[in-house]
């Protein structure tokens, strides 16, 4: 239950901000000049804030669309990401977002129309070529959708821009906006999964695996292209059984023809993010594992990582073939 909403003065009258605020009639409203005054100061504790994050309504002023990080691609050459939101309603202990922002508050940038302009700018740079736009880099694309109305806007935006390919990436079951309209063939809805033991231990507040599979199947049957994201892969002594069972569960009812792409990558974090996470959660076993902490990208020691990746690649290939498989290694 959000008790406090910070509102940038510049968006106080924005219709989307008003619609979101209507969901929080009882929340205290605090006006600010820029969201960064609340979000960015030092001496904030992400872990304490995660227990009851506030909401910030803001306007994204620049860098609305950015080149996607290496290893993000799922078949396209021109890859970009944009974030209508910062931070995630879920609380996954492996997530790099914990180490990225000083605050755990949710920031929603309500000026979606400016994102559309920025997307047009990118498309103009790549005449006659498709461009991919990933919307789930700094947040879960759909988890907050009933409040933000992001999916409906994005679908209208991308329906009018056939050269632009959109990926929603989610662990949620918030798919009403998608089911309410015919499927678009330039949109991929990508669901992230980990095995049950990892889900139970590390994915706080995330809907159960079966619920997510059910949502995914509904979309597949409605004609939407489905992405599967097994990233991060978490190593355990029983990984072969755990991932074997997970893949079987995910693919058993899913028509392969609906699958656009399957990407996978071992657990990894930029070294600075890893250090921040260790400070926040020193008692977290995942962070105390056999990791190569000297590397710029902290991950499992080479032999464990290779073993895990090779196993998963082989198994996934059995289900979808190699041409839909994308390793997400930086």
């Amino acid at each position: 239950m959000t008790r406090l909403v910070y509102i940038e003065d510049a968006v106080a009258a924005h219709p989307r901000a008003q619609r979101i605020l209507a969901h929080f009639a009882k929340a205290t409203r605090v006006h600010c000049s820029r969201y960064s005054e609340v979000f960015n100061p030092r001496a904030q504790n992400f872990r304490l804030q995660k227990s009851d994050p506030a909401l910030l309504l803001a306007r994204k002023l620049n860098k609305l669309v950015l080149p996607a990080p290496t290893g993000y691609a799922i078949g396209g050459l021109n890859n970009y990401y944009f974030s209508h939101m910062l931070n995630c309603v879920y609380d996954c202990r492996y997530c790099f977002l914990q180490g990225m922002f000083r605050s755990a508050h949710y920031v929603v940038f309500v000026n979606y129309e400016d994102f559309a302009q920025a997307i047009d700018g990118v498309l103009a740079q790549h005449r006659d070529e498709d461009c991919w736009f990933f919307s789930g880099h700094d947040c879960d694309s759909l988890a907050y959708d009933p409040l933000t109305g992001f999916a409906q806007w994005a679908l209208e935006c991308f329906a009018a821009r056939p050269r632009a390919q959109l990926e929603f990436r989610t662990k949620s079951t918030q798919i009403r906006s998608l089911l309410a309209r015919p499927a678009l063939n330039n949109v991929v809805v990508a669901f992230s999964f980990t095995p049950q033991s990892v889900h139970a231990a590390l994915e706080n507040k995330v809907p159960g695996i079966d619920k997510r599979i059910a949502a995914m199947l509904q979309l597949a049957h409605a004609g939407w292209r489905i992405g599967l994201r097994f990233d991060p892969l978490i190593y355990s002594e029983g990984y072969a059984v755990d991932y074997g069972q997970l893949f079987e569960r995910v693919f058993s009812d899913l028509p392969v023809s609906s699958v656009h792409s399957v990407s996978f990558g071992a657990f990894r974090l930029p070294r600075d993010s890893f250090k921040t996470l260790v400070n926040l959660y020193p008692g977290e076993p995942l962070l105390a594992g056999p990791l190569n902490t000297d590397a710029a990208m902290v991950g499992y020691r080479d032999n464990l990582e290779t073993e895990l990746l090779e196993f998963c690649r082989a198994r996934l290939s059995d289900y979808v073939g190699d041409n839909k498989l994308y390793p997400c290694q930086p």
């Binding site: 910070y6 600010c32 100061p41 904030q44 304490l48 227990s51 605050s103």
Partner: peptide, 26 residues
């Protein structure tokens, strides 16, 4: 939930995440 220095106009926003028992104000 906000502290404004009336002279310098500098403002801080004390996070209210743990302040569930009391209403907040500027």
């Amino acid at each position: 939930h906000s502290v404004l220095d009336g002279a310098s106009r500098q403002r801080w926003y004390p996070p209210q995440v743990l302040m569930r028992r009391v209403a907040s104000g500027a």
